[in-house]
Computed example of a mutant assay.
Amino acid sequence: MEVYIQVAVLWNRSLVQRSAAVSSGSRCCLVYRHAVAMGTNAKEEMQKFTDKNSRLARPLSPHITIYSWSVPMMMSITHRGTGVGLSAGVAVFAVSALVLPGDFASYLSLIQSLSLGPALICTAKFGLAFPVAFHSFNGIRHLMWDLGKGFRMPEVYRSGYAVIALSVLSAIALAAL
């Protein structure tokens, strides 16, 4: 024989009903049902929340103006951006290699025939080399973090500046080739 016990409690401004099936055997089943407290609905609760934040002049969270910009924050954003950019670049290059007529040598001779000048060519090569170098060096930095090294704030900043310096120097060297 099973006996059902229902308990209704007000928990965190919502009504929680707990049903327990109690039997003489060893099985016991608990069921929780959540419902909004009587007299309110989700729209009214959201309106109360918005009104309170407006009255207290709180910004939406997270809001870009409440953060102070730091090197680790910018390194994280740039690492993700270069990863997305490199993935998109490889995908576009692969699809264009499949779809466009001709081979790589014909497009290379087309670029050489434009006589763009060494300054523009080196700038373009730097623009291609920097994301690769930055993402690679910052990836090594993340691998060091995975090993549990370099978590103190001075080390985080020092490794960040080292990644930036190595990325710029490597990109310049690659662009000079």
Score class of each variant (00 low, 15 high):
35 A>E: 07
1 M>S: 11
102 G>S: 00
91 A>L: 15
177 L>G: 15
176 A>K: 12
35 A>K: 06
143 L>E: 00
3 V>I: 08
42 A>L: 14
54 S>E: 03
77 I>F: 05
116 L>A: 08
76 S>L: 11
148 G>S: 07
133 A>H: 07
41 N>R: 01
98 L>P: 08
79 H>L: 04
115 S>N: 14
149 K>N: 13
137 F>R: 04
54 S>Q: 05
69 W>M: 10
122 C>W: 13
139 G>C: 02
171 A>D: 05
34 H>Y: 08
132 V>K: 05
13 R>K: 11
27 R>T: 08
26 S>Q: 14
149 K>M: 15
95 V>S: 04
1 M>I: 08
151 F>G: 02
40 T>P: 00
58 R>I: 06
62 P>W: 06
139 G>W: 02
37 A>H: 02
149 K>P: 04
135 H>W: 14
10 L>K: 12
68 S>D: 09
107 Y>H: 00
120 L>R: 12
89 G>Q: 00
138 N>T: 12
136 S>M: 14
109 S>A: 14
105 A>P: 00
167 S>P: 12
61 S>H: 11
100 L>I: 00
106 S>D: 03
123 T>F: 15
94 A>H: 05
22 V>M: 09
176 A>D: 11
137 F>E: 07
162 A>W: 10
53 N>T: 01
131 P>A: 01
129 A>V: 03
146 D>S: 13
95 V>G: 02
174 L>H: 13
16 V>R: 07
133 A>C: 14
74 M>Y: 07
89 G>A: 04
132 V>E: 02
36 V>S: 01
114 L>P: 05
23 S>K: 07
16 V>S: 01
166 L>E: 08
23 S>C: 03
159 S>G: 04
39 G>C: 01
170 S>Q: 12
141 R>M: 09
72 P>I: 06
112 Q>E: 15
80 R>Y: 12
70 S>C: 10
101 P>W: 00
118 P>Q: 12
10 L>I: 10
151 F>Q: 02
70 S>Y: 04
164 I>C: 13
127 G>Y: 01
170 S>H: 11
65 T>Y: 09
170 S>N: 12
117 G>I: 02
20 A>F: 12
88 A>D: 06
8 A>L: 14
22 V>Q: 06
83 G>C: 04
144 M>S: 07
49 F>Y: 10
16 V>T: 06
11 W>P: 05
106 S>R: 03
149 K>D: 10
39 G>K: 03
153 M>N: 10
51 D>K: 05
108 L>S: 10
142 H>R: 03
91 A>W: 09
83 G>E: 02
22 V>C: 03
159 S>L: 14
6 Q>H: 15
109 S>F: 06
18 R>T: 12
67 Y>R: 14
103 D>V: 00
62 P>I: 06
98 L>C: 14
139 G>E: 00
98 L>Y: 08
79 H>P: 01
97 A>S: 13
99 V>P: 02
83 G>L: 02
59 P>M: 03
26 S>I: 11
73 M>P: 01
19 S>N: 15
97 A>Q: 09
98 L>K: 11
67 Y>P: 07
